[in-house]
C-alpha cells in the first residue's frame, strides 16, 4: 500500500463521486418541490444507461473511430440516455405522483408509491431489455491520457468528470439564475404563495422531474460507459446518491453535489484501507455520523420551511 496508490484511489473516488453528485441532484430537486423521496430515481438512472446502449447499438460506431467520430458517438449516447431518463421521470410524475397530489394524499402514500414505481420500472426493464448485462458499444479507445500518482487516468475518467462538472455548473445556473429556477425555489419554499405570484406549480414540478431525469439519465449512460448496463444497476448507486443528498442536506442542490463527491471518495478510500467487502459500509456510517451531529445535513437549511 503505497502513498501513490492511496492518491490513485482518491482520484477514482472523485470520478465516482461526480456520478453520485449528478444522481443526487435528482433526489434533492424533487424533494425540494414535493418533499418526496423519489426512490424510483434510481431506475431513471438505469433507464438512462439503457437509452445509451440502445441508441449506440442502433447506430453502431465504426471500429477505430476518429476523434471527431468519438465525440459524436459520446454526445449521441449521452443525449439518448438523458432523453430516456427524462421521459421516464416525466411519465413517472404524470402517472404515479400527480394523481396523488390532486387528492392531497398523505406523505406516506407518496413514499409507498415511489417504492412501488421503483419495483415496477426495475422489473419492466428486466423484461424489456433482458436480464443479462450488456456492454456499452465502444465509442473510442479508452487509452491512458496521463498518469497521476501511478494511476492511469483514462479517457473515460476524464469524460465522466468533465461531463459531470458541466452538468453541475449548468444546473446551478438554471436553479439560481433563470426564471424556471426561481419558480422551482419558490415552490420549494411556499407552493401556495408561489402560485399567488403566478407560478404554475404543476408545470414547475413536471419540469423539475425532467431536469432530474436528464441528469440521472446522462449519469446512467456515463456509468454504463465505465462498467456495464444491467437492469439491476440502479439500486446501489441510487441508494448511495440518495444518502449523498441527505448528507449534503436534502433540498439543497450544492449540498447534493458536495455529498456525492464525499461519498465517492469515502467509498474508494474504504476499499483501499479495508477491501472491497466494506465498499458500501463506510459511506452509510459517515451518513449516520454526520446526521447525529447535523441532522439537517452538511449544507442543510438553517432557516425552517414556512408552515
Amino acid at each position: 500500500m503505497s502513498l501513490n496508490e492511496l492518491w490513485g484511489y482518491l482520484v477514482l473516488g472523485v470520478v465516482l463521486g461526480c456520478l453520485y453528485a449528478v444522481i443526487a441532484i435528482g433526489y434533492t430537486l424533487v424533494y425540494g418541490v414535493l418533499q418526496l423521496l423519489n426512490f424510483a430515481h434510481s431506475e431513471v438512472f438505469m433507464f438512462g444507461g439503457f437509452g445509451g446502449v440502445l441508441a449506440l447499438t442502433a447506430w453502431t460506431p465504426v471500429v477505430n473511430p476518429s476523434g471527431m467520430q468519438s465525440v459524436l458517438y459520446v454526445a449521441f449516447g449521452m443525449a439518448a440516455g438523458a432523453a430516456l431518463g427524462a421521459a421516464v421521470a416525466y411519465g413517472l410524475e404524470k402517472v404515479a405522483y400527480r394523481p396523488l397530489r390532486k387528492h392531497n394524499a398523505p406523505r406516506l402514500v407518496f413514499l409507498i408509491t415511489a417504492i412501488g414505481a421503483s419495483f415496477f420500472l426495475y422489473n419492466l426493464a428486466g423484461k424489456l431489455f433482458d436480464r443479462s448485462s450488456v456492454a456499452m458499444p465502444q465509442m473510442y479507445s479508452n487509452e491512458t491520457v496521463f498518469t497521476l500518482f501511478d494511476t492511469d487516468i483514462k479517457t473515460t475518467h476524464l469524460l465522466i468528470v468533465f461531463s459531470a462538472v458541466a452538468m453541475m455548473v449548468g444546473l446551478d445556473y438554471v436553479v439560481n439564475r433563470t426564471k424556471l429556477g426561481s419558480g422551482i425555489r419558490a415552490v420549494a419554499q411556499d407552493p401556495e404563495v408561489a402560485s399567488l405570484m403566478g407560478v404554475n406549480i404543476d408545470k414547475v414540478v413536471s419540469r423539475t422531474f425532467v431536469i432530474g431525469g436528464l441528469l440521472g439519465g446522462a449519469a446512467g449512460f456515463l456509468f454504463g460507459v465505465n462498467s456495464k448496463v444491467v437492469y439491476t444497476m440502479g439500486f446501489l448507486p441510487g441508494i448511495t446518491a440518495f444518502a449523498a443528498a441527505v448528507l449534503g442536506g436534502i433540498g439543497n442542490v450544492r449540498g447534493a453535489m458536495l455529498g456525492g463527491l464525499l461519498l465517492g471518495v469515502v467509498e474508494t478510500m474504504t476499499v483501499f484501507f479495508w477491501g472491497d467487502d466494506w465498499r458500501y459500509v463506510a459511506g452509510f456510517a459517515v451518513l449516520v455520523l454526520v446526521l447525529m451531529f447535523r441532522p439537517t445535513g452538511l449544507l442543510g437549511e438553517r432557516l425552517g420551511r414556512t408552515a
Binding site: S182, R185, A186, Q189, D190, E192, V193, A194, S195, L196, M197, G198, V199, N200, I201, E301, L303, G304, R305, T306, A307
Partner: peptide, 29 residues
C-alpha cells in the same frame, strides 16, 4: 396562478415571504 394576470395581488395572512430568498429575489418573484 392564472388569476394574477387579471390584476389581483394577494398579501396572505402571516406575510409568507420566501425565507431563503433575498429581499430583492422576493420582490422579483
Amino acid at each position: 396562478h392564472d388569476l394574477v394576470r387579471f390584476g389581483i395581488g394577494h398579501v396572505p395572512e402571516g406575510r409568507r415571504v420566501f425565507p431563503r430568498m433575498t429581499v430583492k429575489e422576493n420582490l422579483e418573484m
